[in-house]
Amino acid sequence: MTLSGQGLSVQGLSVQGLGKSFNGRTVLEGVDFSVAAGELVAFLGANGSGKSTTLRCVMGIASPDSGSISIDGAALETLQGRDLQQARQRMAMIFQKIHLVPRRTALDNVCAGALARIPTVRSLSPLLFPADVQQEALDCLDRVGLADRAFDRVGRLSGGQQQRVAVARALCQRADVVLADEPVSALDPRAAEQVMALLRELAHSEGLAVAAVLHQPDLALRYADRSIGLLQGSMTFNLPSTEVTADHLDTLYAPDRDVSDRDVSVRTPSADRTTAA
């Protein structure tokens, strides 16, 4: 397996020169990376470093100011209308807050991943979903190990199970590229391990290109093939996870320490005053 695949037209996702600013403040600048098919890439960085914005720009939820996004070598900015829509549908997103409908069954939620392939009239109620879509959704649930919970309401599943249902929904969308925005931040450690193992398995054994924004460096280094560090909107490293060192991680989270230093300095005068009193 190739770990670099930088900039070339690879199978999978390729992003070049991504830039974005909000109200004149630069949040992303010159972000280049690629996620090859069969590879799990982790994005690391402090709050506000631009890792979620990167995913949202790639997904089309936010619109980047500059940059080029390609899937299997086809640049999205050269596509229009139906072609663009179909290219976008090859990417699926996994959310931190899971975003399933709790009152519906796991199966119905997974079927919703296929809505783009279902005629509008047949998508007005789960009772009308085509039988082949329902069968495919059940297969997707089986791939995440939850076929036996297909007819349970999602609200009755645990957080980890819910996130696996969300992964199944992405599979039912027939996505080749899966973007996960802090997929395990709301989960307990064991569920987090399960979801990360699932994402790695989907990349390695099913050939998906998976990019995950993570807040836990140890999870990233243990599960991801490659880790990308973002600091204030720019990439600081893009390395195989085995080559990422403690120094690399320190640079990412150093700004956080500055903030806490400042907090202490703000508190100091009042502390002085009370000890003097």
Binding site: R88, M91, A112, G113, L115, A116, S123, L124, S125
Partner: peptide
């Protein structure tokens, strides 16, 4: 929003 990113149209988003 999740269904919109999956390519569902407006009516499908509302209904599902």
């Amino acid at each position: 929003e999740a269904l919109r990113t999956a390519g569902a149209n407006r009516i499908q988003q509302v209904a599902n």
